[in-house]
Design a protein around this nucleic acid. Structure first.
Lengths: 152, 152
DNA sequence: TGAAATCCCGACAGATTCGGTCGTATACTG
DNA sequence: CAGTATACGACCGAATCTGTCGGGATTTCA
């Protein structure tokens, strides 16, 4: 399936929202949740995670809330996803650095590890800022799907 | 998480195994399952799926089994994953062509749809043959992670 | 023709993960 | 002190995933 969890989605949406409102010092979890109609308490936990990973700065109390810890250009989608869903590996057997113990003959994961890196690279190349500028940059001379090339 | 299901892993492993044994006319699900120590009945169902999607040809009876329906070079990892896990979308809200009804304000998915295409493109560029030749082609003048570029 | 091997397929149970809620504690503001 | 907000752990229901079971159909071979 290869799909993001809803939490990661929510996290990206929230950061995008924060990036779009740089004028306000901080936005509460509830503000953002209401803006998108997502469960406030769930979003709160997500934002707490992002704070713990240094992507956001939080402030309790009245007029408190969350703000980007860095420029939107300096926060990649990869960081967000990684902070929320943890490290991802395309092969289900890969856990940390060790190969799969269960099926020692799993020779598939070595080539897929490279795919993994490629995907991670793509995600790293996308910043929150990119998401915020959702005015699509129009198909400026690009082929079918962005630029894809993999030196396998 | 962004990870393949075990089924998809098994499917890729099985196809790779078939690609590595072109001399035999057909291999039974049990043969392949034993080779990798994976549940035979589960693998059988996976191979049936792949057959239904035209990636394998099956033959019942003694000395029956499965064989690649095409040259290993002509079967992409994308097809395998797609056949087993169904269409994948990186954003959890994307269902078919319709936008997410739940959160109509989900503006995140448009940029991510492009990431999705990129990933699909990478997966399409990898053939079963590539997996079978797991002698790594050595880092032949490649930067950090294959070639990554995305015209967002 | 009958037995063995093999594919085919639907149903189902167990485990895991995910989404979401609740309750409580803590921190800041005024 | 009262109100607003984050912080965090426990928990539950739902969905998904993994794996198993059982019965059937097809082919080969003796």
């Amino acid at each position: 399936m290869l799909k993001l969890t809803k939490k990661a989605d929510y996290g990206l949406m929230a950061l995008k929202y924060l990036a779009e409102h740089p004028e306000t010092a901080a936005l509460s979890a509830k503000d953002v949740a209401d803006a998108y109609g997502i469960p406030a308490q769930l979003l709160a936990k997500i934002l707490q995670l992002l704070t713990k990973h240094g992507l956001l700065r939080s402030h309790a109390g009245m007029n408190g809330g969350y703000a980007l810890a860095r420029d939107a250009r300096e926060i990649s989608a990869y960081e967000v996803i990684h902070a929320i869903d943890g490290p991802f590996f395309i092969t289900s057997c890969t856990k940390g650095t060790k190969s799969c113990e269960l099926t020692p003959s799993c020779t598939i994961k070595e080539p897929l590890a490279r795919v993994n890196e490629t995907i991670a690279g793509v995600l790293k190349s996308i910043s929150i800022q990119d998401l915020a500028e959702h005015e699509q940059p129009a198909a400026r001379a690009r082929d079918s799907h962005g630029l894809v090339a993999l030196t396998l």
